[in-house]
Design a protein around this nucleic acid. Structure first.
Lengths: 112, 112
DNA sequence: TAATTAATTAACGCATCCGTTAAACACATG
DNA sequence: CATGTGTTTAACGGATGCGTTAATTAATTA
């Protein structure tokens, strides 16, 4: 599978607040579709589609227990997103380090 | 501005390979629209729209030099994305730590 | 001023996203 | 088998995304 298309799916999956809310909920542990839908102010079919998108991106997987489909987080996909962002970490890190240095210098001159 | 909408804009901006390519190019330094368009196999107006999306997400800013609009990366927006992913870092970090522990144990029993 | 270069906006077509309601499917149980 | 509960799929409508070409704006230069 193309790395580019995988990132497409990951980022567009993350681009909807309902889907990020679902991930946030799943960070606390498994949950059924209805449990995930409860706080979301939209119909159950809508939530079902969001879950399908998250599954398509590999961000979650769904199990099966009786008529329930417990969902759980898939850490590997989140790690892929983090790996992409880490690619740029040094860019803003450098800027923050510089800011910190300025603050330290100002502090030295003032009350250090 | 709502944090949620900002994340919407950030992630959907990152969800297109051309836009990620533009960011990657800008990580190496400023570039004009034409320079950014050169490797992208699409028309200049299309690239212009992608740049507008990136600007709307706060990921880049455009300056002005004669008839050129040099674009540069906006580290703060990338930091916002990184902050979101960091929120989940412990989840996959835990799994990787566990994997590493297993590997270490296997190593101990085998050749350590 | 006229012509050139850089970039954006306009207008269009096609595809996908996102919500809804209604229907169907899967499993559990009386 | 019939009924209830959990979840998905189907069908529809409206909005947005993404590419194109043609036209327009902005600044440079002959």
């Amino acid at each position: 599978m193309s790395d580019d298309r995988q990132l497409d799916r990951l980022f567009s999956a993350l681009a909807h607040p309902a889907r990020r809310a679902i991930l946030a909920r799943l960070a606390a542990g498994e949950a059924t579709v209805s449990e995930l839908a409860a706080p979301l102010d939209m119909s159950l079919p809508a939530v079902s589609r969001h879950i399908r998108v998250l599954r398509g991106a590999g961000l979650i997987t769904s199990g099966r227990s009786a008529q329930f489909r417990p969902c759980r987080l898939e850490p590997h996909a989140l790690a892929t997103v983090a790996a992409w962002t880490d690619q740029y970490r040094h860019i803003w890190q450098a800027r923050f380090d510089a800011m910190e240095a300025v603050i330290r210098i100002l502090g030295d001159g003032d009350d250090g």
